[in-house]
């Protein structure tokens, strides 16, 4: 373990990894260049690759797909799914659709904000959790619903949020 750590520090592994990601992005975008309607799938792939949509990546996408940067930005800004800020390891989404809202989603959200000590759209300093609001996950019978990563939690009570968060490493 110790050896591995030393190796990682000396080779600046983080930076190289990012450069590699950009190389991969370029290959992906080039392969999509002639496909009509490629912008949204490319943005999804990019977000999966980086965990968010860095400006540099968006500039590359704009250039390679020959779409004005303002248009790319407009699409990114339209869909709440896309994020231009780095996200934590787990994204916590609190549903505030009608059913969840009336069954106390708002209180669950407040409890999560307090527990994580971040606002909506924020990320914890240890980059473990990001907090977001969702609009109906299609599980209204289980309201209020919270998603952490791809796991769903049903009938969440404000007092129960600590326990949910603790179950994530």
């Amino acid at each position: 373990m110790t050896e591995l750590k030393t190796e990682m520090t000396s080779c600046n592994c983080g930076e190289i990894q990012e450069e590699e990601l950009y190389e991969r992005l370029k290959i992906i975008v080039k392969s999509q260049r002639t496909i009509p309607g490629a912008l949204i799938p490319v943005l999804q792939t990019t977000q999966n690759l980086f965990g968010y949509l860095p400006e540099k990546a968006l500039r590359i996408i704009s250039k390679e797909l020959k779409k004005p940067y303002s248009e790319v930005a407009g699409v990114v800004g339209f869909y709440s799914y896309f994020s231009t800020t780095p996200k934590g390891k787990y994204t916590v989404r609190v549903c505030l659709g009608t059913a969840c809202y009336v069954r106390g989603g708002q209180d669950v959200l407040k409890a999560l904000q307090k527990e994580l000590n971040i606002g909506i759209g924020g990320t914890t300093p240890d980059k473990k959790f990001s907090l977001e609001v969702g609009r109906c996950f299609g599980a209204c019978g289980l309201a209020p619903v919270v998603m952490v990563g791809d796991q769903t939690f049903q009938r969440v009570k404000p007092t129960g949020v600590g326990e949910i968060l603790n179950s994530f490493e």
């Binding site: 004005p68 940067y69 303002s70 930005a73 407009g74 339209f78």
Partner: peptide, 10 residues
């Protein structure tokens, strides 16, 4: 064909 302006946000 310039594309400076586009709808941003919602």
């Amino acid at each position: 064909g310039v594309g400076s302006l586009f709808a941003q946000g919602r």
